[in-house]
């Protein structure tokens, strides 16, 4: 699973510009499912039709994980070759000094703060500049509109299963989805896997995918802030304690039947899971829930520490657990 995670994490894919990561995912799911296509907004849709004999009444199940990652967009370049940027998705300015930013054309840079060689204050984006080493506007290899993503490397932290990386939100979910599709056995249901665009920006991709696919119910697979670091309350969604079934976030109350189905699937699969009520953020489930005449949704969350910073941490056991839950969910 670590190899797969590294592969999808290293693919460039800021919101709205997901072509490269889409190609990487497509290569992983082609041949595994019955149909792979890209819709007009760039969502990658992988469809697995029912296999095996009979069983329960067939349903169309949407699994959504977003391909995009947070980024910065070049807004202007000054006479000295420094760039000013706009956030794409939630970017915390205080995490930027020392962060490594990589552009689609391979150019790399980092951030500085106006008038401060060693900044000590809380930072705001307008007071910061992106430095790629250019000496003048003409020398700068960036153009207005270019998007930079945060990059380090995806490596093991302490222990066998803790991993550090730059964009587990939501490449961890993408890896889970790919792995679940690969391992999927017979199922009476149609699995509609959507690798969505622009979740970090507007949930636009999930809204379009849900409209196009018309699922009977849907699960969003995304990271959730882990509640097991110092002084965080409540202590839920702990790293390594299994995937979290998120019952409510700031925008979505999961459908009771989907919640029960997820709990039953986890129990059937014999994997540890956690129940969570989240006070931060939301997921593709928000947009899917109001598609057409409404879609019952649930959220399967992967606990992650330090999300929306350039270096995040997940536990591979949670990813493995999520794969098992998804498989069990559609097995009968």
């Amino acid at each position: 699973m670590l190899d797969l995670l590294q592969k999808v994490c290293d693919a460039y894919g800021p919101s709205g510009y997901e072509a490269r990561v889409r190609d990487v995912i497509r290569a992983e799911v082609e041949g595994v499912v019955d149909e792979v296509r890209t819709d007009r907004l760039g969502n990658l849709l992988a469809i697995r039709r029912p296999r095996g004999s009979g069983g329960a009444a067939s349903q169309k199940v949407l699994w959504a994980a977003h391909m995009d990652e947070i980024a910065v967009m070049v807004a202007s370049i000054d006479d000295y070759g420094f760039a000013r940027v706009a956030p794409v998705g939630f970017v915390n300015p205080n995490t930027l000094p020392g962060a490594r930013v990589v552009f689609e054309n391979g150019v790399e840079g980092t951030f500085g703060v106006e008038g401060a060689a060693l900044p000590r204050e809380a930072l705001t984006l307008p007071s910061m500049f992106l430095d790629v080493g250019a000496t003048s506007r003409a020398d700068c290899p960036l153009k207005v509109g270019d998007l930079g993503v945060f990059r380090h490397s995806v490596v093991r932290a302490h222990g066998e299963t803790r991993v550090l990386g730059h964009n587990f939100d939501d490449r961890a979910g993408v890896a889970v989805l790919i792995q679940a599709l690969r391992e999927l056995g017979d199922s009476p249901h149609t699995v509609l896997a959507a690798f969505t665009v622009q979740e970090e920006f507007s949930l636009l991709g999930a809204a379009a995918a849900a409209f196009g696919l018309e699922p009977d119910f849907a699960i969003a697979i995304d990271v959730t802030p882990a509640g097991d670091t110092p002084k965080i309350k409540p202590r839920d969604a702990c790293l390594g304690a299994g995937p979290a079934i998120t019952l409510k976030d700031v925008a979505v109350i999961g459908h009771p039947q989907v919640k029960q189905a997820l709990i039953a699937a986890a129990e059937r699969a014999g994997v540890a899971f956690q129940l969570q009520v989240s006070f931060i953020g939301t997921t593709d489930a928000m947009a899917i829930q109001t598609s057409r005449t409404g879609v019952p949704v649930g959220t399967l969350s992967l606990p992650a520490r330090h999300i929306h910073t350039p270096t995040q941490m997940v536990d591979l056991n949670d990813l493995r657990g999520a794969v098992e839950v998804l498989k069990a969910l559609v097995s009968s």
């Binding site: 819709d39 007009r40 907004l41 969502n43 507007s202 636009l204 991709g205 809204a207 379009a208 995918a209 409209f211 196009g212």
Partner: peptide, 9 residues
């Protein structure tokens, strides 16, 4: 416009 129906480039 972009978010209408199944999405429009």
């Amino acid at each position: 416009v972009q978010a209408a129906g199944a999405g429009i480039p």
